[in-house]
Design a protein around this nucleic acid. Sequence first.
DNA 1: CGAGCGCTTGAGCGTCCTCAAGGTTCGTGG
DNA 2: CCACGAACCTTGAGGACGCTCAAGCGCTCG
Lengths: 231, 231
Amino acid sequence: MYLKCTSCRILHHCLWDSLSRTLLEGLLEHSLVSTYEPKEFIFHERDEAYGLYVLCQGLVKLIKSAQNNKQMIVALVHPGQLLGVTFALNGGLFPMSAQAVDLSTVLFLHRKHFDDLLQRDPSLSLLLLSYSNEQLGQTLNTLIDLVALNVEQRLAGALLQFAESAANHTNSGLVCRLPLRRAELADYIGTTPETTMRVLGKLKRENVIKIERRMITFLDIQRLRELAHSA
Amino acid sequence: MYLKCTSCRILHHCLWDSLSRTLLEGLLEHSLVSTYEPKEFIFHERDEAYGLYVLCQGLVKLIKSAQNNKQMIVALVHPGQLLGVTFALNGGLFPMSAQAVDLSTVLFLHRKHFDDLLQRDPSLSLLLLSYSNEQLGQTLNTLIDLVALNVEQRLAGALLQFAESAANHTNSGLVCRLPLRRAELADYIGTTPETTMRVLGKLKRENVIKIERRMITFLDIQRLRELAHSA
DNA sequence: CGAGCGCTTGAGCGTCCTCAAGGTTCGTGG
DNA sequence: CCACGAACCTTGAGGACGCTCAAGCGCTCG
C-alpha cells in the first residue's frame, strides 16, 4: 500500500531542519509512504537494507532478538526520526527489526534516490553521521544502565522518559498514556513481564504512580527521580 | 609529548584502504602522535571532542562508567581503528573514555584539519558513517548478549574473540596472550572479577582451556563454541 | 457471549553479587 | 640481589535479586 506523500508536514521539523529546501523536496518527491498496523513489521533483522525509513506518524520499536526467544527493545522511534539509520548505505543488513507499536505511517526512500541526494548535498552525510553517533550514544547509555542499575532504577528511568515526552498536567499530577504494554515495557528495560509487574506494584503501593488501563499518573515525580538516579 | 608521524605504516591498511592517496597524506601531514602508558587515558567521558584519534600501535579499551563505581568495557580498539568515532564533528562530548591497555601509540587529528579533509573528499564522511554504523551494530550485539546470555556464554564468546584475533598453533592447541587482566575481562563481559574467576576455573577443570600467567591455551575450541552459542 | 490475549500475583529456586581472606606476581628501592 | 609493598589473582560462604513455572482474573473484540 504505497502512496505519494506530498503534504506530509512532519519532515519540516525535527532532524530535517538543517537541510536545504531542495533536498527536502527531493525527499518528498521520491519517497513512498505506507502504513503499518500495530505489531506489523517494517523490516526484519538481517534483511538487506534497500533504503531509508522515516517515521511520519505513530510509534515504532526497534527490537533485537536472541536465540532463546528473548528480545530487547533497543530504541523507540518517534515521528520525524529515522529507522535503521543508514545501514542502507553499506548495502548492509539491518542489525535489528522495526515493528509498529501504534498504527504508523512510514516514509521509504530507496537507496538509489538517497544516493542522488547525497551527491547533491554532501552535508547530508554529516547530518546522518551525527544522527548515527547520537544513536550510538543512546545505546551505550542503555548498555551501562543494564549492568549498573537494578530493575527498579531502570523502570523508574523509563517511566520518567514517558513523563517527559508526553505528559499532561491534571489536578492529581502528571498524566500520560503508557506507550508500551507490560511485556513491551519489560523488553524495554531488559527484564521479564512478571518482574516488571512486581516493581510497578511496589511503586503503586508507595503512591509514586497510579495506573488505570493504559493511563499512568505520576503522583510523586520527585521520588521517581530519586529512585532512578540514586543507589 | 607530540611527534610528527610521517613514517607510520599502519594507516595504509585497515579502514583507510578506500581513501585517496591525497587524503591519506593530508592525514599524515597534519596529525600528531603521542604514546600512552598502560592505564593512561587518551580522553575521558564528557570531554569535549576536539578531534579524531587513530590507534597506531598497542591496545585501547573504551569504557563507560556509572555512579556506583561500576564500569563496562564497551569496545576494544586495535591498531588501525578509530577512537571516539566522530563525535568530533558534532563538536560534541565523548560518550565514553579511552584508556590504554598496553603501551599505545595514538595519532590525533584536530577537528579543523579534519574538516578540511571532509571538504576535499566528501566520500570520507560516508566511510565514517559506515564505521559509525559498524560500531552501533557491535554495541547492539553486546547489549543483546547481556540480556540473553549467562556469564559462561559471554565469557566463552570473549575468549573466542581473542582466539580468532591473535592465536598461534602449538602442539597442544591454540595459544595466545590474554589481552586483558581478570578485572578487565570482567568489565568486558559485564560481570565481577570473582564470577569471572569461577567460570574460568570451571573451564580449566573441564579441560577446555589452560591458563598460565597471561597465556591461554585453547584445548577444546569446539567445546568453547558450543558453550558460547547454545543455551 | 465466548475465546484469546493481556494483566496480576504467588511460590520456589538459580545465578550471580557481596564481603572477606589468603596467596601470588610484579615493581621499586635499599 | 634481596626485601618489601602494592596490585593482582584466587577461593569460600552467604545472601539477594530476578527468573521460571503456574494459575486465576479481566478486558476486548469478533
